[in-house]
Amino acid sequence: MKKIINDPATVVVDALHGMAAAHPDLLRVQTDPAVVVRADAAVHGKVAVISGGGSGHEPLHGGFVGMGMLDAACPGPVFTSPTPDQVQAAVTATDGGAGALLLVKNYTGDVLNFETAAELAAAEGTEVRTVLIDDDVAVKDSLYTAGRRGVGGTVLVEKIVGAAAQRGDDLDACEALARRVVAGVRSMGVALTACTVPHVGEPSFTLADDEMEIGIGIHGEPGRQRVPMEPADGIVRHLLDPILEDLPFVEGDRVLLFTNSMGGTPLVELYIAHGIAERLLAERGITVERRLVGPYITSLEMQGMSLTVLRLDDELVELWDAPVHTAALRWGV
């Protein structure tokens, strides 16, 4: 394992200190328990939008803390959900009197820890709502699984709901909006290589040089099927076809297309993939009105990518375009 770290046990805290040093104007970092909080929190009268999850997906979630997006993020250890006291600390630090909305990726660990936190926060008198994000079409949503995972769609939910809270929408409206975005977003990922969790020291799985894993999660967990490596055209089809079939997205739809790197895939390859996806969508009569391209929800140094497609309407476009000022996303300011 070759990583720029001092000690596997202090990776998250060390990174948080660096993050605080890098963005003093945007955020504050608390370390016991670990929470990244918007610099001007608590914002009076505003719904607090809070998310969190295991570390190793940077810039998710801490990189999205700031004006127009998240009020706080709770970073767990690498690939492990945060604990309820982190979430409670986030609620306390951001409580502007309008309640808190917890945006939770649908993984058992995250769900159970946020659920426990919501119960504790409610007992302390803050109104807390939770919306689960489950956009990964690689996992069958059935009684026989823990349900779909939250992946790329998370970034879009956080941006859009963050904008709504910033413009003054109340807790009911923010919650309903979050559910609406979740209902209209679908994702799928692929891994070309595995990643190495610092405290494990070895790759999470092995892929031969001529193999790729379709339907990969963002924690190095194996995906849906292992297939021979293909050129970019084939890879993009493997991701896009199941996404479009699932919702389904149909001719005439207006969409946001998010082409995401898992961390190790460079932008030059990502743009190749993005161009192909735009062409395939155009062929189907689906209009790409907004796009996001880059490493926004990663899996450490994994090579690979994901595609996320969100169905848009005028309100969602307006909220997407609204000003945002965070470490990882910034426009309109």
């Binding site: 604990t83 006291d85 058992t108 660990g109 159970l112 426990t116």
Partner: peptide, 15 residues
């Protein structure tokens, strides 16, 4: 355990 384990096991063993 609830405040330090995280993952699925933290809330489960804690509860």
């Amino acid at each position: 355990l609830i405040s330090t384990v995280g993952g699925a096991a933290g809330p489960l063993y804690g509860t």
